[in-house]
Amino acid sequence: MSTTEAENKEIARKLPEEAINEGNLDIIDELVADDYVGRNPAVPEPYHGPDGVKEFVSMVRTAFPDLEYTVEDLIAEGDKVVRRDRATGTHDGEFMGVEPTGKEIEIQGVVIVRIEDGKFAESWSYANMMGLMQQLGVVESPGE
């Protein structure tokens, strides 16, 4: 089943809005291919298939239970969608070895998604992790 660029954009939007914002992990089974590979320099190894995405989303939602993703831009060409996101939340759970700080965060990032047969087949994510760690107080901001 081939999808249009407009359908691909909707698929790319639907995953963070439903899985992360609403906590609907079942949507991951619907939108992520079994052989999906997600690459994110913030995690040591790529994550695979729906279970890998569920594990990642659960980790993020545990660390930032009120996390709210906002899709700022969507650009589609062929089977790829580029999504620019902004996320806000409160650090109320352990995140990447950092104990909860209670601090509010805002982070921006870009995700490139390849859609095949109506599902995420691959993705490449880049987020401002340095800025996040500065907001959490783990890393000093320049000039401090």
Rank of each mutant, 00 (worst) to 15 (best):
I75E: 01
P44L: 04
D29N: 15
E5D: 11
T3R: 01
L132K: 01
I75L: 14
K14C: 04
D35G: 03
V110H: 10
M130S: 12
I11Q: 03
G109S: 03
T70E: 15
V111G: 12
T101S: 14
R13K: 14
V82E: 01
V111Q: 15
F56L: 14
L74R: 07
G38N: 08
I112K: 05
L136W: 08
R84C: 03
W124M: 09
E106Q: 09
A19V: 02
N40W: 08
L74G: 11
R61C: 03
V71M: 13
D51A: 13
A33P: 01
V32S: 04
M59H: 14
G93D: 05
L15A: 09
D35Q: 11
S123C: 11
F64C: 10
L67N: 09
S123F: 01
F95V: 00
W124F: 15
E94F: 07
F56W: 12
S58Q: 12
Y36S: 03
E7N: 06
S123E: 13
L136N: 07
V43E: 02
N8Q: 05
V71S: 13
D73Q: 12
A87E: 07
Y69D: 10
V60N: 06
Q108I: 06
P46D: 05
V57F: 12
D34N: 12
G49H: 04
P100Q: 06
L67T: 05
F64T: 11
G23Q: 10
S2P: 09
Y69E: 13
Y47N: 12
I112M: 15
E22P: 00
T62Y: 05
V71T: 15
R86S: 11
G137C: 09
P142N: 03
E18M: 12
V113H: 12
P46W: 08
P142C: 07
V139Q: 08
D34I: 07
A63Q: 02
F56K: 07
E99P: 04
A6S: 11
V53P: 00
E106I: 06
M129S: 07
V37C: 02
A87D: 04
Y47K: 01
V32F: 09
R61A: 00
E18T: 10
T62V: 03
E55D: 15
P46G: 02
Y47D: 06
A76Y: 05
F64V: 04
A12R: 05
T88Q: 07
P100S: 05
P16H: 08
I105P: 02
G97F: 02
D79Y: 08
I28A: 02
V138F: 02
P44E: 07
R13F: 00
L136F: 06
R39Y: 14
K54W: 08
G102P: 00
F64Q: 05
T3A: 09
T62G: 14
F120Y: 15
V113Q: 09
D29F: 08
I115G: 00
V43N: 03
D117W: 02
A12Q: 04
G38T: 06
M133C: 03
I11F: 07
G97N: 07
D92H: 12
E22M: 05
T62A: 15
V139G: 01
E68C: 14
P65Q: 08
M129L: 15
I28R: 00
P100C: 08
E5N: 10
I105W: 01
E22H: 06
Y126Q: 13
V60Y: 11
E10F: 01
I28D: 02
Y36R: 00
D26W: 01
H91I: 13
I27Y: 08
A76F: 10
I27C: 10
E30F: 02
P44C: 03
G143V: 10
A6T: 12
